[in-house]
Amino acid sequence: MPFLIKEYALAAHPTTWFFLWLGALVLVPTYPYSVIFFFAMLAPTLDLVYAKQTQDILYTALLPGGKNGVVWGKVLYTFTFQTGMLLLTIPWACLRTLYIQNNPIALNANVTYFGFGLLALALFDFIFLTGFFKTGTKIGWPYFWGTLAALLVLGVMETLPHLPGFAWVNSVQPQDLWRQLPFLLVGLVVFVASFFGTRHRSLKRFEQVDL
């Protein structure tokens, strides 16, 4: 827990608190809501850039826990930030579904949306963080590959309702939301698995890095 507190109090970029609320973009009547997930990927990336500027990684590595503490803090921070951002999106998504019309240009903020979003974030986090901890310094390529993987997942999400027989994927009717639950379950399971996998692989990789 001290590492998580340290991440939010010392290491987090000031814009983190702004990004946290960007789920409210689901209230915009016509907007590709997938973009919200890209904000959820951009925020931890900016944090790592900021961490390099503030010597946060060196500072943390010198605390009890050493380099393992660096990995633990960054992985915890990334996953809790994204979880918080998605949880804060839910009330806005409910509000929108109840009071505003369907999103005419992209997928609605429904159960499918959250399921695929979790899947995209899980893949991004694994690729991005394990890629970063291979060197402890390089951010660009891990971000590129992580974003590309997420883009593919979110591309599938946006394409699916346009396929014959899959219109229910984009629905916000209660009976269809139940049908969409498997997407959410898969997303949740992969997101949790990614947390442990990312931590494990990042620890292994960062052990080999000299600071």
Binding site: P2, I5, K6, A9, L10, T54, Q55, D56, L58, Y59
Partner: peptide, 15 residues
């Protein structure tokens, strides 16, 4: 090595 240049000393110490 300068850590957290934007932070107050008290904040860094508290953490």
């Amino acid at each position: 090595t300068v850590y957290y240049p934007e932070k107050r000393l008290a904040t860094i110490t508290a953490i």
